[in-house]
């Protein structure tokens, strides 16, 4: 067993025994870490709210065979506005769930941590309707699953491209016609997110286009993960 220090964002927590929790964190230099936090559920626990989901913490932990054990943690960022607004919290939950599913143990790739940190900071400062869609598309691109948007992903033709087919890996033309309808606005927003215009999309995207971009991103992500995203639209149920 060895002691290590890292920074991470708490993705989810699961109850363990009488008063403990297992926390899943995405970290700066160790990929996804699953660690036990002892006594965290007691009201007078020294952990307080430090190991709550969506907390950005600096921590010290023992390396274990299956689960690590957190020994100390300090808060780096609270993301207060995300915690105090139900809609922002629901958006953050989708982003945390996706990172939890995608991220691997012992990976030294800092990208998922940095992207989630950036997305939570952005959501904390302004509730853009495009944030979840943009985050999912950026994460898919990072995973090597960026969509084909310039030519038809089915036949390679030039279009017009009016559909989006997650199984084909991008936009499709009228003759291939797979998947869901794709509006020119949503196609432009996705291209903008992936082509270096992220900030302007987050600022300017209207809620209708943002919601279409999010639906398509969710479909592509569910296809990539081969499972449903539980947290999507959970408050509308």
């Amino acid at each position: 067993m060895s002691l290590y220090r890292t920074r991470g964002i708490v993705l989810r927590t699961t109850r363990l025994g009488e008063a403990d929790r297992i926390v899943n964190l995405v970290t700066e230099d160790r990929g996804k870490v699953r660690a036990v936090v002892k006594g965290v559920r007691r009201t007078a626990s020294r952990w307080g709210g430090r190991m709550e989901p969506l907390m950005h913490v600096s921590l010290m932990a023992w390396n274990g065979r299956e689960l690590d054990t957190v020994t100390q943690a300090e808060v780096v960022e609270v993301f207060k506005c995300v915690r105090e607004d139900l809609n922002r919290m629901a958006k953050a939950a989708v982003m945390a769930e996706v990172v939890d599913r995608l991220c691997h143990d012992q990976s030294d790739d800092p990208a998922p941590y940095r992207m989630l940190r950036g997305a939570l900071a952005s959501l904390d400062s302004a509730d853009s309707p495009a944030i979840v869609g943009a985050f999912l598309w950026k994460l898919l691109a990072q995973e090597g699953a960026a969509p084909v948007l310039e030519i038809c992903a089915g036949c390679g033709g030039e279009g017009p491209l009016r559909y989006f087919d997650p199984a084909a890996g991008g936009a499709t033309c009228g003759s291939c016609r797979g998947g869901r309808p794709l509006s020119p606005g949503a196609a432009d927003a996705i291209a903008g997110v992936l082509g270096g215009r992220l900030n302007s999309v987050l600022r300017e995207c209207d809620s209708r286009t943002a919601s279409e971009m999010e639906r398509l991103a969710a479909a592509a992500m569910e296809h990539h993960l081969e499972r449903r995203l539980w947290s999507l639209g959970v408050l509308e149920r």
Binding site: R12, V94, S231, L235, E236, R237
Partner: peptide, 11 residues
């Protein structure tokens, strides 16, 4: 309790 990440909604 509502837990979006576990898919537990108000329903």
């Amino acid at each position: 309790a509502i837990s979006p990440i576990d898919g537990i909604g108000p329903d």
